[in-house]
Design a protein around this nucleic acid. Sequence first.
DNA 1: GCCGCTGTTTGCGATTGCGCAAAGAGCGAT
DNA 2: ATCGCTCTTTGCGCAATCGCAAACAGCGGC
Lengths: 243, 243
Amino acid sequence: MARTNQSELSDRLGSIPVFRGLTPLAINRLANAATEREAGRRTRLFVEGQEVNEFFVLIGGCVKLSLLTADGCQFALGLVSPNEPFGTVAVTPRHRHSTTAEVVQHARTLVWTAAAMRQAFADDARLVLNALDLVSARLDALHVHFSQFATEPVQRRVARVVLRLPQPGRPGDAIAGSDCPISRQEIAEMCGTTLFTVSRLLCSWQRRGIVRLGRQRVVVVRPAALAAIANGAALRTDACATG
Amino acid sequence: MARTNQSELSDRLGSIPVFRGLTPLAINRLANAATEREAGRRTRLFVEGQEVNEFFVLIGGCVKLSLLTADGCQFALGLVSPNEPFGTVAVTPRHRHSTTAEVVQHARTLVWTAAAMRQAFADDARLVLNALDLVSARLDALHVHFSQFATEPVQRRVARVVLRLPQPGRPGDAIAGSDCPISRQEIAEMCGTTLFTVSRLLCSWQRRGIVRLGRQRVVVVRPAALAAIANGAALRTDACATG
DNA sequence: GCCGCTGTTTGCGATTGCGCAAAGAGCGAT
DNA sequence: ATCGCTCTTTGCGCAATCGCAAACAGCGGC
């Protein structure tokens, strides 16, 4: 790849979960085959339906995965955090992306071609196992997410989504120290609701001092209170408006 | 395993997608390690949270995968069809089931211990690739399912679920030639709604001649009409009650 | 400093879908 | 054949949420 020192890159790769435990040889080959790519807000790294020919790992910034339903309604699956691979881990040729990846905040990514990944899979069986574990874990997580989604009222879903939002300067979080602009519309798309409902809920939470709002910004002030809502504690929304 | 002829079993394994393309050696070892197990209605093959120590492939009958949400609400992810593996494909030790598998209709399964599966993964790298593809495909399918679920009104979700239900004697379907008893409650759990709403919708469809209903039974008479509903064609539910 | 654009708030009316209660129906057991 | 159990249907009222329209507000450009 371009600028970065090779062995430094190898070290970095080794710390990414999906590459953990690979042989030095495999890691080095991956490091050689990697390309670093930056992409600005609103760029699309790949689009739903397009053939899979690249594999991404997010290094910095924020990327949103979404898809379109048959009736043209957009639904967002969630945001990708740094060190997470995305795109598709699978290597079946001809496979097509089931989602669209859009950059929410200027993103730095490591990119491999599908061919390079197939080579890597062949180089080290451990990578396949890692990928399998990763995808399985995602599947499990999605099961849980789905079931919550299916059975919970909007208020709780929005609370959950907001809790997962990258927070400015929250350690270990998606974009430590910087802002990730997310509109009410985008939150609505992650919750399967409308921007109006999201706005109403957020405003009521702001009145209660649970969040602080701005244009394309939601800062969680009292995570515990929000978690309580997410877990079903608060039944009423608009009560105690002066809280 | 017990009764069946070994080579016959090997042949059968070879036709199960997840085992496709394995070396004869690996297939034979799998055939040797397999156990056949039958389980009656309402039996649970594994329970959410329990440690994964067996791997299943459904041969006949019908199994429902479900999970409990935090508030004790049951949600059903769907039904397993014959030749589908279930449980968890991943082999990470200590991994726990994220779902519960309950027999809906007397089921015949092939079972392997986690140890046997780990051995098989080691025997033939192709198995790991197959598993990765399988899990990836499921993840993609779940993304789509989820997004439909999140954006569509109840009516369409119920239509979709009913379309997927095993139909008596429909070729290639879950339980060719026999009935798979499913209650309104169970359909509701797959749709994220209540049994009342399901009942109302089904009755209105029956009045329109789209389905035929019985106790724990839904037979799709006009799949095309139901598909039209699933795709958003019919806006009104109760209109044209005599249709 | 003003303008225009995009994103946000809020009120209001219309629906959808829920929840309970009670009556009705299939099915197996005695 | 009857009983009892479970599953299903249906009526009715209510709460949650949507959808639109219009007013408001941050922010960059000129």
